[in-house]
Amino acid sequence: MAAKMFRVEDGKVIIMGTECSQCQHRWFPPVSFGCERCGAYGDDLHARDLSSTGQIYAFTTVPERDGGMYTLAQVVLDDGPAIRAIISEPGPEKLAIGDRVEGVSDGAEQVTFRKTSP
């Protein structure tokens, strides 16, 4: 049931999250059955755009079946939630915990992240 999880506006990736108006907790992916922090539901939950900018908390390489490799990271978004993301550039040898990253989309169904700080 892949719900819409992001969109691109003025070349910027917007991550589509959910926010609770009772306790201001925000999360991703956007699932609106109820708030994990306070239990509020229904009209208390609303869509909340999240900036795709954030910081790398941890990263690792994941081998793929075809012999390739991708870099997976846990990214803490500036807007709150921690998400899993693919880092498309640079390669893992040039990445460090704490690096600033932002989402990029090739227009297809995929968002990856790239490093923005030197």
Binding site: V62, E64, I86
Partner: peptide, 15 residues
């Protein structure tokens, strides 16, 4: 339930 993530590639628990 299929709550997805932005990672559209196979990701084993080991990751």
């Amino acid at each position: 339930l299929g709550f997805d993530s932005l990672v559209r590639k196979p990701m084993a628990p080991v990751a």
